[in-house]
Design a protein around this nucleic acid. Structure first.
Lengths: 210, 210, 210, 210
DNA sequence: GGCTAAGCGAGACGGTACGTCGAGTCTTGGT
DNA sequence: ACCAAGACTCGACGTACCGTCTCGCTTAGCC
């Protein structure tokens, strides 16, 4: 997940400190909270982690990659308990996601890193694999449960299934991010209710008529 | 739209060059295309515009504010011709918006500026007033037309109306941005069709049951 | 003395404000006292004088020339009353000169302008004509009186006379400046007594044996 | 002599490059020759030295301190061979000093730095210790030799001795500087002969009658 | 138990851009 | 033609980070 530069996990020499790894990621998150993306500096992170700058660069190629890794782990907290209905499941995960985006280390870092990725293909790939793809599981699980409950029909065409999963993911994630960061208005119960009503209704219609 | 510091248009002294204003914004867009947000420098913009760096700083406090102004005007291109159905209207505006986001000057600048705005209240406000609020008109027009056509019921409660308009705006804009910049997959006819089906279906359901 | 740029005192148009001239020079001296040479700015002088920067540049080509003129007038205060002996005359003028060099507007400006003049021939010429040559009168007067009193022989060779006058001028002015500004030690009665003893003794010897 | 900020030579970290030190001082002198004090820029010196601007500022707080150090070493070239008589010794050292002041790097830098020092106590101190005090040795040696030869009486009072040494130093240095830079006339054999005659004669008189 | 290859903290290095400031010029409208 | 005001170009300032490069010093595993 972290070290890019070890093509062959070399057997000899002093091994890298795993404490340093953890301290650096933790320090990065702390710095994000206090300073935000653009004022976070590698030197400062190193100091906070009680580590030399060299040690950072031995593990991550640059600021962006470090921040992606530092933030990615936060998204793994998201989970989808079975609340008995598609609508409840959606509302729960949206609120969870909104809470995550409220945390300063995510809100500022996520967009900044996405912005950088528009010009940096390796970074985009890292974001995809470290964050985006990992969270698609939520949509997958939610859809599967709704189908088991009979709330959604079982589509046999895998292409359609994947396309719809992708759409739902983009709509939910996109809407929450846009509401929270661009419109800068609260993701509260009222809004979430409207969103999930829209989705549940829309999914029914989409499923009925392809 | 640009000069923050002239609450009272002073009568005396040499007036600011309006040519410089235009040249700077144009140069900023050109630099964004070539270099992207993070490699754009104030000095370079000044050189391109044939203007001294001081002249930039006399008008904009920093890179972010300049870029917001330079990019904002692009969003005014968006329009909503009456295509005869809510669905067609949605598809048209989504494709237009996606095309706009494909342009390098928007894709990189928009996210970067939004990222910065999470730490910079004046910047957020500038984004809201220069970009976000101005484009809500599209949702408003679309909804009004659909109501005239009888595709959507006429809601009398202004609070509900505004909340739904806001939701639709966040969903459409958020989904397109997420698809284009985060998922990094194409906003093609197929995807747009699915999205508009979801929305039209969902809106019907939402309108039926508050 | 001031306006360089009027080759022909033009008859037409609004005449230059003589109040402005005085105010500028006075403001320049005030700024020198407070800020010293290197921190004095044209804009600041203009503000202090209640005048536009344009008005300064209409009269002086640049900062150096302005400062020379502002300071030159101070040197005209030096005078040489007849105190009855060569030695007393020397001591008096040295003390006067030292007092002048103690004033902050002279001490900082004089050296700075001389420094600039090593690379700026017109400036050197302006210094010569505005300051240096004007003060040689003191040496001349002093020598003439000493000859009348019989303290010094009357040399008939004008070349020798001028060379000796110049030497005395350089020695006195140079020694005082060096003591005050380089060695940074006080020009007190004791030191002045030693200097004038050296000079009177030396002049006698020089006069005796060409 | 250069690094102000290392009171204790720190043991850790990469040590400062001594080549950079030398290259910077040499580049400073070269820039002084070509451009003079006021047109010398830190960036240019850095470029000439093949060094980053940061490296300059890591060693010297500002232009003045750098120039003092760059120029100080030139004064160490002055020497006082025993030419057999006080007068010959004086003439020799005066000519040497005049030659030094003729060099463009000294003539422009010396006065500028002295001018700045009138407002900058640390700078004045640096000049005293780096330049002035170091050259007083010349006066000391000259006086001692003259006493050995019997040209000057041996004064027992150390206060008088030091005062006279200081006077001679100010007179010689001041007169030469004033002749060369203010009067802007040549320090030629004729002038030097007159000056040394004045000094030798004067010293005799001063020694005879306290 | 010494060898050796890597890791480590510290901090100097070459760069690049920043945002500010001052010099000297130009352009208003008004005297 | 003058003036005050203030925007203009230009170029240097000194600072801050970047990512790299020595230093001298651990700290393992392998011989």
């Amino acid at each position: 997940m972290c070290s890019r530069t070890s093509p062959r996990t070399s057997r000899t020499g002093r091994p890298r400190s795993t404490e340093a790894d953890a301290a650096i990621l933790e320090a990065t998150r702390a710095a994000l909270v206090e300073l935000g993306w653009s004022k976070l500096t590698m030197g400062d992170v190193a100091t906070r982690a009680g580590v030399a700058k060299t040690t950072l660069y031995r593990r991550w190629a640059n600021k962006n990659e470090l921040v992606v890794d530092a933030v990615a782990v936060l998204f793994d907290e998201l989970e989808l308990p079975d609340l008995g209905s598609l609508r409840a499941d959606i509302e729960y995960v949206v609120l969870q996601f909104a809470a995550l985006l409220e945390r300063p280390e995510t809100k500022t870092a996520l967009m900044a890193v996405v912005a950088e990725s528009t010009r940096d293909e390796p970074l985009r790939e890292r974001i995809r694999s470290s964050i985006v793809e990992r969270q698609k599981r939520l949509v997958l699980d939610g859809r599967r449960r709704a189908q088991l409950r009979g709330e959604l029909p079982v589509d046999r065409d895998p292409v359609t299934v994947e396309a719809t999963d992708g759409l739902i993911f983009d709509v939910i994630a996109g809407a929450v991010v846009h509401r929270a960061l661009v419109s800068a208005e609260p993701v509260d119960g009222d809004w979430v209710a409207r969103l999930s009503a829209l989705l549940v209704g829309g999914l029914g219609a989409v499923a009925a008529a392809p």
